[in-house]
């Protein structure tokens, strides 16, 4: 239950192609990282699943059915994105009660336990909360509705680092306790990469990457060592990122290491590690 599938989906807005030939499948029990530069089409893609707008061409299904204006399917999807609560006079408690009334699967106890981690005063009005606290309420609501498809779009915006860490651990717990599709669209790639089972990269309205995160990271590797050794090692390689600290250099390289390269690692002069998701993402989406 809760499969989301795009088949050759196009979206045009005022004759402009926003999404082109999207083919994707989100399966329950997995966390998807949806990455892309600003304006790549991430939010628009998620808004299609949430039926905020209609696809122009192709087929989008949730649980095998077209979700658009489908009273049985729409409640299965939760789309959380940064909201303006500056005029929202309802308290956090009212907000939860509202969700409970409209979403029968909403788990109030779970919501309270999630919100408790952020120390949010339930009696406070939404507009009285800080932006980070409002984001925490949204994040908790998204998990507590227990909907089979949860779409988080930049939901950690405004949260401080400890709150973001709490949210990440809540997502991992949610993934382990329920079998549902969780999509995390984010710009904070470096913080969230360990949450993802699969990575989807959208670039200029097209799917550039759709693969398990391990496979994606196998597209490159990272080497650390002295600046001289690293320079010599990377002479004939495609380096996508270089960081130096004193006499030490760390580089991200596209491709796989050869047998000879591996000998270098065995010698101990250079150390080998997996590619950083952020480096790959930046490299792939550079125009």
């Amino acid at each position: 239950m809760g499969n989301v599938e795009f088949k050759n989906v196009d979206l045009k807005i005022k004759k402009e192609n926003i999404l082109t030939d999207i083919n994707l499948k989100f399966e329950p029990g997995r966390v998807y990282g949806l990455l892309g530069r600003n304006g790549a089409g991430k939010t628009t893609l998620l808004s299609l699943i949430a039926t905020y707008r209609k696809v122009t061409k192709g087929m989008l299904t949730v649980d095998g059915q077209d979700p658009y204006e489908n009273a049985d399917i729409m409640p299965l999807v939760d789309f959380l994105h940064p909201e303006d609560y500056s005029e929202e006079s309802e308290t956090v408690e009212d907000y939860l009660q509202l969700a409970k009334r409209y979403k029968p699967s909403f788990d109030m106890g779970y919501a309270l336990s999630l919100l408790n981690e952020y120390n949010i005063d339930m009696k406070k009005k939404m507009m009285e909360l800080s932006q980070g606290q409002q984001a925490a309420v949204d994040a908790s609501m998204g998990l507590a509705t227990m909907s089979p498809v949860v779409l988080f779009d930049e939901v950690t915006n405004g949260m401080d680092a400890p709150s973001r860490e709490k949210f990440y651990s809540q997502v991992l717990n949610a993934k382990n306790r329920e079998n549902r599709v969780i999509v995390l669209s984010t710009h904070i790639v470096s913080e969230m990469d360990y949450l993802f089972d699969e990575v989807v990269v959208i670039h200029h309205g097209q799917v550039l990457v759709d693969e398990p995160v391990d496979e994606f990271l196998d597209r490159g590797y990272q080497v650390t060592g002295s600046i001289e050794d690293v320079d010599e090692f990377t002479r004939d390689k495609k380096v996508v990122n270089t960081r130096t600290l004193g006499p030490t250099s760390a580089v991200s390289i596209l491709g796989s290491p050869s047998k000879e390269d591996e000998k270098m690692f065995d010698s101990g002069r250079l150390s080998y590690s997996s590619m950083r998701l952020q480096d790959l993402f930046i490299n792939l989406t550079e125009d």
């Binding site: 009273a71 729409m74 409209y102």
Partner: peptide, 10 residues
């Protein structure tokens, strides 16, 4: 309304 899972028709 849409955020609460209602359709436009509802």
């Amino acid at each position: 309304a849409i955020g609460l899972g209602m359709t436009r028709k509802q």
